[in-house]
Computed example of a mutant assay.
Amino acid sequence: MQTEPSPLRYLDGAAVKSLCAGVDPLDAVTEAFLGVRANRSGVATEAALRWTAPDGAAARSLVLPAWHEGAYGCKIINASVSNPDRGLPRAAGLILLYDTETAEPVCIMEGAHISALRTAAVSVAALRAVRPLPTVDRVAVLGTGVQARTHLGLLAAHGAVKSASVYDLSPPRSQAFAEELRASLPGIEVVIAADPESAVRSAQVTLATTTTTTPYVPLDWLPEGSVFLNVSLDDAAEDVLLGAEHLFVDDWHLVSEDDTRLLGRLAKAGRATGPDTRAPGARQVDADLATLLSGAYERRITPTDRTVINPFGMGVHDVALASRVHALACDQGTGVFLPR
């Protein structure tokens, strides 16, 4: 007897955002890192489609398949760098989850909020492993998009950030961002920086969330004891990546295979190697984030050491977070059911 396929649950952006409020994103991404370390979770080969939009802007579509603790799925995340000028989010996408036995899609959910939240959660979880969050008072923010807002909100929710020095190439965007922060996070003093150097030099933590492909932040801008969260592509110059006392990545294979980012290009040129490989004249990445978050990183991080956290972005974190959202949706009967 043929079994009827189960309905396909769809969760729109509002539903996803509401359900995410009931999930601890730092716990979700930490669990996923530890799952990867224990071979209970992982990622498959990613696919990237890149093109030039009619307006000349760089556009792309990424597909990130992954599994986590018995959940299987993928994220499809698309972006065009000119979207903010249109009044649109730079990135938009979907997350699909599959039935473990039949491999049927069981849920489609809006992916941009989860993508932003898991990215911020990876940054904050890694930062928490390096510095106690309540001691992080001053943050520099380079770029004023969704990632910047999500990171600051998550940092503030965990007792960090008393002041933020904000810089964006567009002064109107900086002003709008500052006004939005003052309304949404009134406990944070917001200052618009005249240039990126003054912002970085004033901060214990720098959050880079731009779309630049031209490195511009040198090592001597980073104060002693500071942390550089290199969330975006190429804000950090070579000497930051090669010269900071500690350098962490989420997945060396993904980083080293992507020559659209500086660290990947340094790897291909033989000037940077992974945590398990030494080479004469090459900077060895100190550890992956799974090692750091598990407590297995053996080198002491002193109060004056400069640390770079360089996450590539792993689909396993999207699947881990999305699977928790899906479980809540099932418990609460949330979503729209689509016929197959």
Results as ranks from 00 to 15, higher is better:
121 A>T: 12
154 L>P: 01
166 V>D: 00
162 K>E: 05
54 P>W: 07
42 G>I: 09
134 P>H: 12
61 S>H: 02
53 A>Y: 13
120 A>T: 09
122 V>T: 15
44 A>Q: 13
80 S>H: 14
176 A>T: 10
36 V>Q: 15
163 S>Y: 06
77 I>M: 07
136 V>R: 01
131 R>G: 06
171 P>H: 09
60 R>M: 05
74 C>V: 04
106 V>S: 00
159 G>V: 10
167 Y>L: 03
121 A>M: 12
159 G>P: 07
143 G>Y: 03
130 V>I: 14
107 C>P: 05
173 R>V: 00
139 V>D: 00
65 P>V: 09
81 V>W: 09
163 S>V: 12
120 A>C: 07
83 N>D: 06
131 R>V: 10
78 N>H: 10
75 K>R: 15
65 P>A: 03
47 A>W: 15
40 R>Y: 06
171 P>Q: 11
109 M>N: 00
71 A>K: 14
42 G>H: 13
156 A>K: 15
88 L>N: 00
66 A>H: 06
143 G>W: 06
123 S>A: 10
99 D>K: 09
93 G>H: 07
174 S>K: 07
140 A>H: 03
113 H>T: 13
123 S>Y: 03
38 A>F: 14
100 T>A: 14
139 V>G: 00
134 P>T: 04
81 V>C: 02
76 I>S: 05
132 P>V: 09
64 L>H: 06
114 I>R: 08
42 G>C: 10
121 A>K: 15
93 G>P: 08
106 V>C: 11
132 P>K: 12
110 E>C: 06
74 C>S: 08
89 P>C: 02
107 C>S: 02
156 A>N: 09
53 A>E: 15
161 V>I: 13
144 T>G: 02
42 G>S: 06
108 I>T: 07
132 P>L: 09
110 E>F: 10
176 A>P: 00
110 E>R: 08
96 L>G: 01
94 L>M: 09
102 T>S: 15
66 A>G: 11
95 I>N: 06
82 S>F: 07
82 S>N: 13
98 Y>W: 08
90 R>L: 05
110 E>Q: 11
79 A>W: 14
164 A>D: 05
117 L>G: 01
166 V>A: 07
161 V>Y: 04
161 V>R: 08
66 A>M: 08
170 S>W: 13
59 A>K: 09
116 A>T: 08
118 R>Q: 12
177 F>C: 02
177 F>V: 02
89 P>K: 11
167 Y>K: 06
171 P>A: 06
113 H>V: 12
65 P>G: 01
91 A>H: 15
163 S>F: 04
79 A>K: 09
105 P>S: 01
175 Q>C: 02
123 S>Q: 11
133 L>F: 06
47 A>E: 12
70 G>Y: 13
173 R>L: 03
135 T>K: 14
113 H>A: 08
156 A>F: 02
127 L>D: 01
176 A>L: 04
47 A>K: 00
148 A>I: 02
110 E>T: 04
110 E>K: 01
153 G>M: 07
135 T>C: 08
178 A>N: 11
88 L>C: 03
153 G>A: 08
107 C>G: 06
144 T>N: 05
158 H>D: 04
79 A>Y: 14
160 A>F: 05
162 K>Q: 09
63 V>K: 06
